[in-house]
Design a binder for these strands. Sequence first.
DNA 1: ATGGCCGGGAACCCCGGA
Length: 254
Amino acid sequence: MKLATWNVNSLNVRLPHVMKWLEENPTDVLCIQETKLTDDKFPVTALETAGYQVAYTGQKTYNGVAIISKLPITDVVKNNPKFEDAQQRILAATIDGVRVVCAYVPNGQAVDSDKYQYKMAWLAAFHEWISEEAALHPQLAVVGDYNIAPEDRDVHDPAAWVGMVHVSPKEREALQRLLEIGLVDSFRLFEQPEKSYSWWDYRNLGFRLNKGLRIDHILLSDALRQRCTGCVIDRAPRKWEQPSDHAPVIATFS
DNA sequence: ATGGCCGGGAACCCCGGA
């Protein structure tokens, strides 16, 4: 089984990239974020014709998440039942006995901004809900754009990022609390190249100079960790024409 | 370098992203 997460930064623009990537990288479950599409605009036909089932929840202009799967999708839940949220950022579903949570964690904009307060409140409620999901579903994968770089080695220039959103101690603690539920960052289960990132700024030749952050993660419960045989970041689509600023992260399972 | 890039939506600038 192969499970991937990718912030596509507008599915309207990136649908061809998604289709091409799925063709080149047969994937059982692809979780995407920032679709920026209302549900009536979701490209159901294109994906179904390619042999995938879909679940999605979106809104105009911002946010929006979806799960694209070769295998049947059941027990779909939209949003965190414990957090009233007008923003469409969470989709959970069961696929092949695995509970998959696709999440787009708020950006936070700047430490101590209103958006940062929202991010922290969102993460607290997410922790509460994921704790329960973990108790209910031994095989749990919590994947998506976390907008948090866990450690300094996940940041191209840690000194330059001190005090910035994505690396602040409070955000990192929130991610750590999620891990304490019994989840593991699948990327760090395996030897990885130095300076591995999943996002690069469009500006300043960010990708060319590998000035990035590793903020997209696949967190796994212990039962899934036992089955995990690899986790990689696929930089290839970041080199395509008109790319998303994020790259897919892929975990494989026995 | 005080910044550069994107996408969306409403217009030909501004917001949000990270």
